[in-house]
Design a protein around this nucleic acid. Structure first.
Lengths: 205, 205
DNA sequence: CTTTGATTTGACCAACTGGTAAAACTCACG
DNA sequence: CGTGAGTTTTACCAGTTGGTCAAATCAAAG
């Protein structure tokens, strides 16, 4: 058994290469559609060599997911109860949109997993994500009742933000095929800003 | 070689069973993740028997896709240039939402394919869907210039409608995990109606 | 009831899958 | 330099994959 030492320079490099390769392969083929060989080749290693660093395909996937989920939810966590409600939400939308542009593979990895029923992730969603969503939708509801933003079902509001922003990563191929060379991320920020501004700006009644 | 006869009663039944089974399996595992054996079992046939009706796994997938795309785009096609603009769009949103509720597997099948880069579908998207989108976004733009609805990027408007409505099918597992037993489709119609009403109702300026 | 085409099955295959074992190599450190 | 831990490779395995083939069975028209 390998002792629990500090990781070697080689260990650090190879584990990083494997996770990077796994992100690429898992995000474009899903868990079952991805092969260990493909990941190994993409990482510049042989299959047994890869399996020297991770005990199994599933172990790679799990580490990738754990790593992803941490940063993935950061924007929502940093929704500030003391900020200006409308601007907080609009900033959250833009941050999520930027993540779709800068980390589309992470978004697609997540999408693949959820679309296929989240067999390896449902636990985390039902506990960690649920707690965060409960907290933040309560905050949204307070803002609504205080008249700071228009009323709407807070959870559906969150769903809509996720859906709209991640769509540009998950359906990237389709979006680009229909935009005739124009970069979708040119007009998307303004479109989403306008949408949520009109949606949420309090109508005085 | 089999003559090009009218299909037998048995042929009709089995081909239908296979496509139904394939929809189930492909939509939850993606193309590469699905196995012919799984589809055959789900359809109540042996694998060689299934391959008597379809020459290959890919042939099943292609027929399923062709069949899907036809009906999938119907709601958009029936966006009526002579109807009331706002009500036409809102009706389109509701029709798409109903499709997510009634045919979630079809939506997930499509999502799986697009998320994974649409390797078997990009052609159709770039031609057929593109033509339809060009036509309808031109219509939207006319409505906007006539002041019937608020201005917004017409293609992004379409993307947002697809994204928001199909989210309830594609991310069903997550949505339900976060809704604590409440049916998402109870509040979704009103939420989306409100959203697009506020977004598109002409602001008098 | 027979015949003929449609249907189903069992046996099989080559390629690929995730994973293992042990030998071979490489590297940092004394 | 040598030595032991860390690393990589070669060879391999059992199970699964998509797909084939010929033989067996079934259904329906005469």
């Amino acid at each position: 058994m390998t002792k629990d030492r500090a990781p070697t320079r080689i260990q650090k490099k190879n584990r990083a290469a494997i996770l990077e390769a796994a992100l690429e392969v898992f995000s474009t083929h899903g868990f079952r559609g991805a092969t260990v060989d493909q990941i190994a080749t993409e990482a510049g290693l042989s299959k047994p060599n890869l399996l020297y660093y991770f005990p199994s395909k599933e172990a790679i996937f799990n580490e990738l997911m754990a790593q992803l989920l941490g940063t993935w939810l950061d924007p929502l966590r940093s929704l500030d109860p003391d900020g200006d409600p409308l601007e907080e939400i609009l900033a959250y939308v833009q941050r999520k949109l930027q993540m779709s542009r800068d980390f589309p593979r992470e978004s697609r990895l997540y999408a693949n997993e959820i679309v296929q029923g989240a067999p390896r992730l449902l636990g985390t969603i039902a506990t960690d994500l649920n707690a965060l969503v409960e907290e933040k939708s309560a905050l949204l509801q307070r803002w609504m009742q205080a008249g700071k933003i228009n009323s709407a079902h807070p959870k559906h509001l969150l769903f809509s933000i996720w859906s709209l922003t991640q769509h540009y990563a998950d359906f990237d191929v389709q979006v680009r095929a229909l935009m005739a060379g124009e970069d979708p991320f040119d007009a998307a920020p303004e479109y989403l800003d306008t949408l949520y501004r009109r949606m949420l700006t309090p109508s005085d009644n």
